[in-house]
Structure formats: structure tokens, C-alpha cells
């Protein structure tokens, strides 16, 4: 009995089990306190769709051996630029969305290429370098936001007439465009079909990619560089490609996030955004050396549901918004746990 319990823990992993139990407890409290469960579930679904692609961005980076992408903010900035360009030219509806995604993808890929070249020079220190590359770019872009030649009066400061505002509202035809696509209600739960479909498409793309010759080569380059070299795979190239994919996905993930959120937040807002994404994929059972699409999906679902439900539940018990604090504690402890774990070589 105890043995099989231990096996269960080993199989699921202690942190994941803790989070699942915590989640269950929250759900019970929520139903006891008669909180609107259907609304909580709808909100959770939206947040899963919003954040999913950014979490997914961790997968190619880990698989190629470049480790968890702590520099995801680089991609996030590319996504922001995509949104800003569309908003500047007031492109509407799906045209706007697709343009934003395209710009984000191209910029993200280009930035990811350079970032990947750097990461190849600093093997073993990718996480620290990535973090500070992200921090530097985010703070450097603050100056850009102030000076950038955007003219749309909706976007720039009223006083002075120069420099982008801190928070920009996405125009109505673009905001929640995916959330509202084919949305329907079942048992009181709103299903944001378009949003989830976008997430699913990204998952499908990665799944197929990792079954192709290129994808398998990348996976092998990450799993055992010496083996890969002996098969004629250029390990450095694969790591760059993994970083490019990751950054581009991060960029497109940010566009999806912004359209669902309804606002574009600039300046220091993206600074810490890579940490929850890293934490989510770890919660899903990934490690710094191995991450699957399934880890990303499961991790996003658990983490975002937890955050969504914890807010009203704790509010019903104590005053104040504990969800931000919970997010900080959970995501950082999760990353800490992964960092101190012996990289499992099973021996």
C-alpha cells in the first residue's frame, strides 16, 4: 500500500501532486462557499488559451539542449512590436491579427537567431545569460518606446505628444477576436473555441515537427550531443533553430495574450513574464533537459486554473489579492526545485 503510494508520487512527481491536491482543495472550498464555479472555469479556460503558446515556447528550446528559455522576454518584445504596428496603422479584425502574428513571428525568429548564436557561446550558463539578456532588452526597449516614431494619438502620451503610453487599449475589432470566435456556452461555462483552437494548432505544429527528420535531429542534439554529432547532425545549428522556434512562438504567444487581455502593456511590464512560463512547463513535469508538448499543456492548465481559482477563493476568506503573491511563490519555488534537482541521468 505504502509502496504503491510511493510509486504514484514518483510517477506524478511531488510538486505536481502538491499542486493537484492544492487545486482540489481550492475547488472544494469554492463549491462550499458557493462561488460561481462555471464562471471560474470559463476564466480558467481563457487564461489557459492566453498563456498556452508562451509556455509551449519552452519546448523547442529545452528539446534542442538550450535549456529553459529564461530570455523569453525577447520574443515577448517582438510580439509587442507586432501589436503596436497593427495598432498604429489601425488594421482591423483578422487582418490585424494575422499581420500582428506575422510581424511577431518574423521579428521573433530574427531576434531568436541572434540570441541562439549567443547561447551557443555560453554553454552551461544559458539560464543566467538568458535572464539578463531578457532584462537588458526589456529595459533597453523602454527607451525605444519613448523615442519610437509612433504617431497614432490613441497610443502616445497626451502631454508632450511623444512616446508611447504605459498601457494601450487594443481596439475593439481586435480585442478578444480569438476569444469570441465560435464561442459557445455549455452548462454555463463559456468555451473560447477560437483561442483554444489557436493553442491547439500550435501544439499540433510542434507535435508534427518533433516527428519530422529535422525535429528528431533537434531532439537528439539536445538529448546527447555526441550521439547527434556521430549521426552527422550539426548540434550548434539545432540549438540555434530551437531558440529561433522558441522565440518566435513566444512572440506569437504574446500577440495572442494581448488580444485576449485587451491591453498592450509596455515598459517594465514584460520584465518578469518569462518566469511564469518557465514555471508552468516545469509544473507540467518537464525538466531543464526534457520537455514535451504534453508537459506544456498540462502545466499551463494546472498553473492557470490554480491562479484563477485562488483569487476569489482567498478573497472569500481573507482580504486582499493573494493571487499575485501566490504566483510569485509558486512559480519561483517551482523553478528553484528544478534547479536544485540532480539532473536525472537515472544512475
Amino acid at each position: 500500500m505504502i509502496d504503491s503510494f510511493k510509486q504514484l508520487i514518483n510517477k506524478i512527481g511531488l510538486p505536481r501532486l502538491t499542486i493537484i491536491l492544492f487545486l482540489v482543495a481550492l475547488l472544494i472550498i469554492a463549491s462550499v462557499n458557493r462561488l460561481p464555479t462555471s464562471m471560474l472555469l470559463s476564466n480558467s479556460l481563457v487564461r489557459i488559451g492566453m498563456n498556452g503558446v508562451m509556455v509551449l515556447a519552452m519546448v523547442p528550446s529545452v528539446q534542442s539542449g538550450a535549456g529553459l528559455n529564461f530570455g523569453l522576454s525577447i520574443g515577448i518584445i517582438a510580439g509587442l512590436i507586432g501589436m503596436l504596428v497593427v495598432m498604429e496603422f489601425e488594421l482591423m479584425g483578422f487582418l490585424g491579427l494575422i499581420t500582428a502574428l506575422l510581424i511577431a513571428c518574423v521579428l521573433g525568429a530574427a531576434a531568436g537567431y541572434l540570441y541562439g548564436l549567443i547561447l551557443n557561446k555560453v554553454r552551461g550558463q544559458e539560464m543566467m545569460i538568458g535572464t539578463y539578456a531578457g532584462f537588458s532588452i526589456v529595459s533597453g526597449m523602454c527607451m525605444f518606446w519613448l523615442l519610437a516614431p509612433f504617431k497614432n494619438p490613441e497610443m502616445i502620451w497626451v502631454v508632450g505628444g511623444k512616446g508611447l503610453r504605459m498601457t494601450l487599449a487594443v481596439n475593439d475589432s481586435l480585442a478578444k477576436i480569438l476569444d469570441n470566435l465560435w464561442k459557445f456556452k455549455i452548462l454555463g461555462v463559456e468555451i473560447p473555441v477560437g483561442l483554444l483552437l489557436a493553442f491547439a494548432l500550435a501544439c499540433l505544429f510542434l507535435e508534427v515537427f518533433f516527428r519530422s527528420r529535422l525535429g528528431v535531429s533537434m531532439k537528439i542534439a539536445g538529448a546527447n550531443p555526441a550521439f547527434a554529432t556521430s549521426c552527422g547532425v550539426n548540434v550548434d545549428k539545432m540549438r540555434v533553430l530551437g531558440t529561433v522556434l522558441s522565440t518566435a512562438l513566444g512572440a506569437m504567444g504574446m500577440v495572442i495574450y494581448c488580444q485576449s487581455f485587451g491591453y498592450v502593456q509596455l515598459y517594465m511590464a514584460p520584465l518578469m513574464m518569462s518566469f511564469p512560463a518557465v514555471a508552468a512547463v516545469l509544473i507540467g513535469g518537464a525538466s531543464a533537459r526534457k520537455a514535451t508538448v504534453w508537459n506544456a499543456v498540462l502545466g499551463t492548465a494546472l498553473f492557470q486554473t490554480l491562479l484563477t481559482i485562488s483569487l476569489p477563493v482567498t478573497r472569500s476568506m481573507i482580504q486582499g489579492d493573494i493571487s499575485e503573491v501566490a504566483k510569485t511563490i509558486i512559480s519561483n519555488t517551482m523553478i528553484l526545485y528544478a534547479l536544485t534537482r540532480k539532473e536525472g541521468d537515472g544512475e
Partner: peptide, 29 residues
């Protein structure tokens, strides 16, 4: 724009750490 200077010093703070780490890791590898 005084704000630029504010952001500049934040950028220098992060940038110098990033650059130092980069140079160190580079040399080591």
C-alpha cells in the same frame, strides 16, 4: 526627456550584469 535617463540607468544596471556574465561564460567556454 528626463524619463529617458531614468530608463537608461535601469538599462545600464541590467546591461552591465548581462555583459559581465556573457564575457565570463564566453571566456570560460
Amino acid at each position: 526627456n528626463a524619463q529617458i535617463g531614468e530608463y537608461f540607468r535601469v538599462f545600464i544596471g541590467y546591461g552591465i550584469i548581462g555583459a559581465a556574465l556573457l564575457i565570463h561564460a564566453w571566456e570560460r567556454s
